[in-house]
Simulated assay, not measured.
Amino acid sequence: SQPSAREQLIAANKSSQALKEKQATLKTELAELQKKNAEFQEVQSQLENKYLDLQNTLLKLRTNAAEPIRIADENDQLKQQLHYEQNKNIDLVKNNAFLADQNIKQWFMIGAGVSIGSLILGLLITRIRWKRRDSWGDVR
């Protein structure tokens, strides 16, 4: 009822050959899958690096977003300081113009005083009668 040994040997060789072919295809599939696995691991490494960069960026954004009130207050304070300094500058320019005007008026008054003094002195000198002596010693 059992097949002869020759037939069993042929069947065993056929199944052995089929198993060897299947082993070869499985080895090529294994090599391809290992290659794909290496590619996926490279992509995973790149994605992990990108993820860490994004985490750092998010942390920086959260840190900066947590400070808008402080930044706004500092901005308002700087605006007030700028306004104060501008007003101070305007006052100093006005004061400088006033002092320059006063200086011009002062020099004008000094010039007027010198002119009036010269006029009075000139009038007085012309009104005084000087006593002249003759060449012989007589007073005229």
Rank of each mutant, 00 (worst) to 15 (best):
E7V: 02
Q8I: 09
L9S: 09
I10A: 08
A11T: 06
A12E: 09
A12G: 08
N13E: 13
K14I: 15
Q17C: 11
L19Y: 11
K20Q: 11
K20D: 11
E21G: 05
E21N: 05
K22S: 12
K22G: 08
Q23T: 12
T25N: 14
T25Q: 14
K27L: 10
T28H: 09
T28E: 11
A31P: 00
K35S: 09
K36P: 01
K36E: 04
K36L: 06
F40C: 07
E42H: 00
Q44I: 00
S45A: 09
S45H: 05
Q46F: 01
Q46I: 01
Q46G: 01
L47V: 01
N49V: 09
K50Q: 05
K50I: 04
D53K: 08
L54P: 01
L54M: 08
Q55Y: 00
N56P: 01
T57W: 04
T57R: 14
L58F: 06
L59N: 12
L59K: 14
L59Y: 08
K60T: 04
L61H: 03
L61Q: 11
R62E: 13
R62Y: 07
T63K: 12
N64P: 00
A65I: 11
A65E: 12
A65N: 14
A66W: 00
P68M: 03
P68W: 01
I69C: 11
I69Q: 14
I69L: 15
R70D: 12
R70Q: 12
R70K: 14
I71T: 04
A72N: 10
D73W: 07
E74I: 03
N75I: 06
N75H: 13
Q80M: 13
Q81F: 05
L82D: 10
L82M: 12
E85M: 10
K88F: 15
N89G: 14
I90A: 15
D91T: 07
D91Y: 09
D91G: 06
V93E: 03
V93T: 06
V93W: 00
V93F: 03
K94I: 08
N95E: 03
N95W: 00
N96Q: 11
A97Y: 03
F98K: 15
F98W: 12
L99S: 08
D101I: 05
Q102G: 10
